[in-house]
């Protein structure tokens, strides 16, 4: 059963980051982030007529003096954001040791970022299992067992929370319609972040000659000769897939980053920060 052994010291060294928050208000429990609703922060939001039961401390007496109308001052709420970290635990994420290791490091980096953010974070791997809370970054090691025959992203109903920040990590190497997939992931979210992780040879294969290609998920087989023509065709298709994801993410207001396995984790962190996914603590 492929599991990731994460080099935590290296990950922590590369992770003085937290998840970047959206500029728009978000939903969540009471916390330290401005929410979309009315609450008890110091930031004024609006007036409304007084109604019996309102806190008298919020009555604007000055306004009453001017207009003889009782009005209550409303303030923005302060919330702790909800984060849904979606990890693809299909076998394709462990197609090679290198990819599995890179996936572990990337997940560890994002777990560190989530825990650095005062947030209610849960890990979603499939609709069949209850989401796991993420208290410390090491919690992801419990779920990072890549042996599923199907990516969680291919499931129609994932247990997302409303107005949550969603971080999705996958190689996205399964047949899909990018617009449909991204809009489904982004529905009712505060912010969607998509991180695609692939091997270099998955993005840019080289001539290998005759090979029997075996799909690690559905065990499908295909005998073919990987030559220049096949490489050219494959790269075109892979580029269309990645470009489709990128465009769909842009249309949905999501953030997208493509990470190539084998890239040092520190560089990965910088790439994610450059993409607006992480921000310095």
């Amino acid at each position: 059963m492929p599991t990731s052994s994460i080099d935590w010291p290296a990950v922590r060294a590369a992770a003085p980051f937290r998840l970047a928050m959206p500029r728009t208000p978000i939903g969540g429990r009471v916390g330290e982030r401005l929410g979309s609703g009315t609450g008890s922060s110091l930031e004024f939001q609006d007036y409304r007529p007084y109604a019996p039961g309102d806190d008298l401390r919020h009555v604007d007496w000055a306004a009453y003096a001017r207009s003889e109308l009782l009005a209550v001052r409303l303030y923005r709420e302060e919330v702790a954001p909800r984060i849904d970290l979606v990890l693809d635990i299909s076998r394709s994420m462990a197609v090679t040791e290198q990819k599995l290791r890179a996936y572990g490091e990337l997940s560890g980096l994002l777990a560190c970022a989530c825990t650095s953010t005062v947030a209610d974070t849960r890990i979603i791997t499939t609709s069949a299992v209850q989401p796991q809370p993420l208290h410390v970054p090491e919690d992801i090691e419990r779920v990072l067992v890549c042996d599923a025959g199907l990516s969680a992203l291919e499931e129609v109903h994932l247990p997302f929370r409303r107005r949550s920040l969603r971080v999705v990590v996958s190689d996205f190497l399964f047949p899909h319609d990018a617009d449909v997939l991204v809009s489904r992931l982004a529905r009712d979210s505060a912010l969607l972040t998509i991180v695609q992780l692939t091997l270099r040879e998955e993005a840019e294969p080289v001539v290998e000659g005759a090979r029997r290609l075996v799909d690690v998920e559905d065990r499908g087989e295909l005998d073919m000769v990987i030559d220049e023509g096949a490489i050219r065709d494959y790269r075109a298709r892979f580029s269309r897939l990645r470009l489709g994801l990128s465009r769909a993410a842009r249309r949905a207001g999501a953030r997208f980053a493509h990470v190539v396995a084998g890239t040092p984790i520190r560089s990965v962190a910088r790439e994610l920060a450059a993409a607006g996914i992480l921000e310095s603590c």
């Binding site: 197609v95 399964f174 998920e217 295909l222 073919m224 892979f238």
Partner: peptide, 23 residues
């Protein structure tokens, strides 16, 4: 039966419409 070296891949669908070799 022709037996090629096996190469596990994550996204076979990206290869499938390419030229296939007779079995």
């Amino acid at each position: 039966r022709r037996r090629f070296p096996v190469r596990p891949v994550a996204g076979l669908f990206l290869w499938q419409i390419l030229r296939q070799t007779p079995e």
